[in-house]
Nucleic acid binder design. Sequence first.
RNA 1: GGUCUCGUAGUAUAACGGUUAGUACAACGGGUUUUCAUCCCGUCAACGCGGGUUCGACUCCCGCCGAGAUCACCA
Length: 502
Amino acid sequence: MNITRFAPSPTGYIHLGNVRSAIYPYLIAKQGDGRFILRIEDTDRNRYVAGATELIMETLKWLGLDWDEGVEKGGPHGPYYQSERRDIYHAYARKLIESGRAYADPTPAEVIDEYRKADNAAKIPFLYRNHRPTEEVAWEPGIPLRFKSEPKAVKWHDEVMGDLETGPEVMDDIILIKKDGLPTYNFAHIVDDYEMEVTHIVRGVEYLSSMPNYLAIYEALGIDHPKFVSLPHVLAPQGNKKLSKRDGAKSVIDYKDSGVLPEAMLNYLACLGWNDGTEQEIYSMSDLLKSFSIDRIQSSGARFDEVKLLWQNGQWIRKIFDEKGCDALYDYTVSRDHAAVSANAANPSRDSLIIFWPESAMNYDEAYRKKVLSIIYDRLKVLSDLREYTSYFFEDPRVDLEYLQSNKFMKKLSETEQRDLLTAAIEKLTAIDEWTADNLQSAFNELLEETGKKPAELFSLIRIAISYATFSPALHLTCEVLGKDRTLARLNATRSAIVNDL
RNA sequence: GGUCUCGUAGUAUAACGGUUAGUACAACGGGUUUUCAUCCCGUCAACGCGGGUUCGACUCCCGCCGAGAUCACCA
């Protein structure tokens, strides 16, 4: 049974670079009957951001990465905030002191800095073990505890990177417990993963260089280590740096606000640096659970490509509409944010209700909005496109002859012709008894024959007159949804404007 | 600087000694009665460099080059 964890620090939002270290462990655990744990690593009080934990939980839930055990949920290995596990770390620390593998170090930070500077100046690697104090001091509050390293070469296996090894020169006396009594990450995660029976540690490659020290601690503690799964970096769109908040890496949850579906985000991120060897592009969670395997995780870094994410989002919008229906897709367009993290220091501007429709759409009922959605959905890349693409369904567009005349097809028609075509169209559409898409299509076809105009000219004219938008769905569908009265009113409005202009 | 990692088109990737180096996004061109999008068809485009091993190397070995990570009382 695989037991994995996601163990973020509550220092802000989760960005795109971090989130694969939640997705992959989730998949590893859930492919069998394993457990996925959410643990909050809040041992650095200086970097703590209020509300960050809530934001992290919201992000995980949004992506469908629900945890079995951890903060908010509880479980047999709690507490799941590291700040509440002090006694556990201290118990392990005392074991190391007893076995002679840890020592209290009262050396002031300034003195350590001097050592470091001196070594740097002498161009030798700074290793604290070369400056180990000679006097033994009792460990008491206010004094940091260090690991007493016994340098040697190590070899280990990483599930992604393969067999790795380093020489003894990288092992050092790292801090186990800080002077504030809380452990460092280096110590805390080892204790926690052991206590929580974690079988796979999934984390970024930046921890690779600390591995020799971790291995030494496992050994000194006399415990087995889990399997290591090191994930390569997600690179920023420009340059070769890893994606980071400093370079403007967006929060994962920001994509929710701009209308990206969680299915698309999960799909894109899971496939960034992993593939199953087939040519499949679209993966649902259940597809991923079926296909995912650690040994096909890429060992090289992958660049984040927003364009491809948006392409996949479009695919998912259509997939959901086609497979689950209009109602299912509609629900995403008025998604409610249950976590209500608006009073959140990490991101104070978030609303608790996300609606991707234009404001005026709220004057209409849900059934009408769904009709609009059903004819526009296949041109959405993100749900928020609705705001820009659908306003003319909810409010009459302003008649704008300049816009009309500047259209490339309208340049081929004189204003008199435009007037006459509109007149003919109005007559033809007025005569329709049953206002259905089929009847409208027939009417438009008849109109084409009767006027002898090209579709590009006749249809562009009508389309612009009823929408004044740069684009719209198929003419007969747009008219059907708009209804007979409004279609005719809009045609008349433009016709009158042309007549006045003549 | 020490240590470690990575290196196929602009991007994400396939290939696990023998292929005209495949696929997707992007770009470009074309088609589907208007526009935008979908969908379909087509075009452009890659094995970092140099040695070796081999009948044969993207694939194995070595060197170089390039890129990145890390050297905190941060994670």
